[in-house]
């Protein structure tokens, strides 16, 4: 007498299905990694951009902002901040002009006391990020 629904079959589906979809995922990931050079703006990944990314990480900017929609939702999206703030000078001036004590009653960005070279690197990083092909996201300049 056989059962309608056996544990052995459920087990086989678990192992078989997992291996099957893991392989499929790896195949798609392989295709993605080989398709990325056309989309990820790596041609403009300069020394300054790399330094800017490190500054972005070392100051935990993602703890307030999103970048390409990922991060915290406390402060504006930065994937297109380069465009919104009017290019490099706009970005550098904004970061530089944050008051150390914050703005009373409002959400404030800290004053990080960056050097000019660091400000330049951050702006370069945001420029590079804004040129990644993100399938037209965000929907508009407000992010």
């Amino acid at each position: 007498m056989s059962q309608a629904f056996t544990k052995a079959m459920a087990r086989n589906i678990f192992y078989g299905g997992t291996v099957f979809f893991l392989l499929l995922f790896l195949a798609l990931s392989f295709d993605t990694v080989s398709a990325l050079p056309k989309r990820d703006n790596r041609a403009n990944l300069t020394e300054a951009v790399a330094q800017g990314k490190k500054l972005w990480e070392n100051n935990n900017c993602i703890g307030c902002h999103t970048l390409l929609g990922e991060g915290a939702y406390f402060a504006p999206e930065l994937g297109n901040a380069f465009k919104r703030l009017g290019g490099k000078d706009g970005v550098m001036a904004f970061i530089k002009s944050r008051p150390a004590g914050g703005i009373p009653g409002r959400r404030s960005m800290p004053q990080f006391n960056f050097t000019d070279a660091q400000l330049n690197a951050l702006a370069e990083f945001l420029k590079y990020s804004s040129e990644i092909n993100s399938a037209n996201w965000p929907p508009n300049v407000q992010g």
Binding site: F5, T6, M9, I13, G17
Partner: peptide, 17 residues
């Protein structure tokens, strides 16, 4: 009795299908 069982095979595979 087996021959008239419906659906044929193990029920688990039908969930998967």
């Amino acid at each position: 009795m087996q021959k008239n069982k419906y659906p044929p095979g193990d029920l688990a595979i039908w969930i998967f299908i």
